[in-house]
Design a binder for these strands. Structure first.
Lengths: 345, 345
DNA sequence: CATAGCCGCGAAAGCGGGTTCTATCCGCCG
DNA sequence: CGGCGGATAGAACCCGCTTTCGCGGCTATG
């Protein structure tokens, strides 16, 4: 028989009732079922390879034991390199709790927020959104309805539950590092378009750091990327084309930094001698770039884990609010910022 | 009322029976339901924002309308950069068919093949496995049981359904390219450990290309990576440490190539002047590396799409067998192989 | 006009498991 | 010997949907 055993089968095989099977397998307390019977049921279930039918369970319990993850991406080939480790972090926590992870990849244009259907069809119990935008109406309505949603980065909704990675502070650190190295004209390229909150927060942090150092902020030295290295390359060329010179660049993330460095190289500028570059995220490849990339380690796996944990808190009925991730955001100084270069002098 | 409407609600609102609602919404043929009634039902369903409860549907139909994707990864931070675009390709096809995508990230050690439970609990209708290994007993049993499984790369199982990306041929092309440039001592670093079939196929292709050119294959010039740039770096140092000189390196993938180039640089070797490097996959960052990376474009999105399509064929009862992906695998010649360099001479 | 045929639709039976609630069996105590 | 309580069996209902069966009412035909 190719059919999976049902709880009825287990009951028959163990010589008990279906009720007993259910009570034992769900580890209900105070049901007064003898140790012996419990052991027998568990044993039979294991030997028959019994796994409860998830659909039946979902139907009766109203919960799907599944977490949804929304990953937005721009063009065909532009992914946020930050996403995979984040996903693994989430996945790991979900697994320990017996939850599944459903991925919803939304392509830039199709603002079809298909993930709303996942909620309506009760396919997921909670949602984690990587690149959230306040302009996403469906998302706003979802949060209004008090469905458990964890956002990476606030969208300023009163009922939202979001995780601040504390990257604003780290972005300040990165900028301050460049300033401390003596740079007065610093450019910035965001890692995503204006309608995402994350890159804009980072831009504001960049600006704050300049303000603190009494360095005027120049709109001309800001470019807008779209996750990909290619967009970093394009944005850099655009800034260069504006004719306003700069001696340092804070890239919104490492992928952007890689594209930017290629554009600088192509323009005959040496990194870090002519332009110092700092990235963000500390991607695994950052230390193998040429020159090796000074960046901020944001520990995406830990962020994923904390997002998942926050989601479970929501599921347990606790509020999360706008919470700060508990991360040790460290500036990793390598070659691209020129700090090591100066020392050599 | 915060409750989602059920088919009963739709039936009431439209003044028909639940049966009619079900038949209309599932677009059954030959049920003889008047156009008018159909329109009314559809309209009511839309206006009430009705989405069928997935659990109930799964339970009664026995199908989950969900595809599982198994992603293996090694260490904490080592992901196959190939995975994200592949995932998006799969996701896209799934979405057009109304299927969901469930991710199962397996960490190297824990060979717990937890995805078997997904099958047993009927949470997924089909499974796609990225990094498959013939030593995965659970996987072999799953294939034996004729559950719809699509493998990336054959594991030599008689009943398997797998997709050959045709990368063996492309790997030969890449190697031949190096040979044609005059290299006699060519090294290779696999992108994953020996127990995965993909990297081993690539290694064999590498060897075949050498054989064709009558160049002896040297075990000493082969290193084993583990998805990450860091592993490419380590493997390269290891090969260098063996003292056997080489003038060209075919890296198992671009990430490995990046790590390898860093190791070569560190050893005082210039790429491509001292060592020519060719990568694999044409990651988006390949053309922004320093030097820009000669590589093979493997179109991972298309591979994902074709894998998903193959999975749907299995679901429709058709056999897939070991099929070759329909891809245009192009060698992208950039700086790292030195082909452009030679021309300059 | 009667009977056959057909169309549109309602009633009802599950799908598998969670959650009562009552019935039963047993040993044991008063 | 009646009663009591612990341990479980068993029946019943529910979750929301798909699907089969067959009922009424209608049209076609002899």
């Amino acid at each position: 028989m190719t059919h999976r055993p049902t709880s009825q089968d287990i009951a028959r095989a163990a010589g008990v009732s279906r009720t007993t099977v259910s009570l034992v397998l769900n580890a209900k307390e105070n049901t007064g079922i003898s140790e012996q019977t419990q052991a027998r049921v568990l044993e039979t279930a294991a030997s028959l390879g019994y796994v409860p039918n998830s659909a039946a369970r979902m139907l009766v319990s109203g919960r799907s034991r599944t977490v949804g993850l929304v990953l937005a991406h721009g063009d065909l080939m532009s992914f946020d390199a930050f996403a995979p480790p984040l996903m693994f972090g989430i996945s790991r926590v979900c697994n320990t709790r017996g939850y599944k992870l459903l991925i919803e990849a939304v392509e830039g244009d199709h603002r079809r927020n298909s993930y709303l259907d996942l909620v309506k069809s009760k396919s997921i119990d909670a949602l984690i959104v990587l690149n959230s935008s306040a302009e996403d109406e469906g998302l706003v309505r979802l949060i209004d309805s008090r469905f458990p949603v964890i956002l990476f980065g606030s969208i300023g909704h009163p009922k939202e539950n979001s995780l601040r990675s504390g990257t604003e502070r780290a972005a300040e650190l990165a900028t301050e590092h460049l300033v401390r190295l003596g740079h007065q004209r610093v450019a910035h390229i965001t890692y995503a378009p204006k309608w995402y909150t994350g890159p804009m927060e980072r831009l504001r942090a960049f600006r704050r750091a300049l303000d603190k150092a009494k360095i005027p902020f120049a709109e001309k030295l800001v470019g807008y990327g779209d996750f990909s290295a290619e967009s970093g390359y394009r944005a850099t060329r655009e800034i260069l084309g504006r004719g306003r010179r700069f001696t340092a660049l804070f890239a919104g993330n490492d992928t952007i930094a890689v594209g930017a460095m290629a554009a600088l190289r192509e323009a005959g500028l040496s990194v870090p001698r002519d332009v110092a570059v700092v990235g963000f995220d500390d991607l695994p490849i950052a230390c193998y770039c040429q020159p090796t990339l000074t960046t901020v380690n944001t520990n995406p796996i830990a962020q994923g884990e904390q997002a998942a944990l926050a989601a479970f808190e929501l599921l347990e009925g606790r509020r999360v609010g706008t919470r700060k991730c508990n991360l040790s955001l460290k500036l990793i100084i390598r070659e691209s910022c020129g700090a090591t270069l100066k020392r050599e002098k």
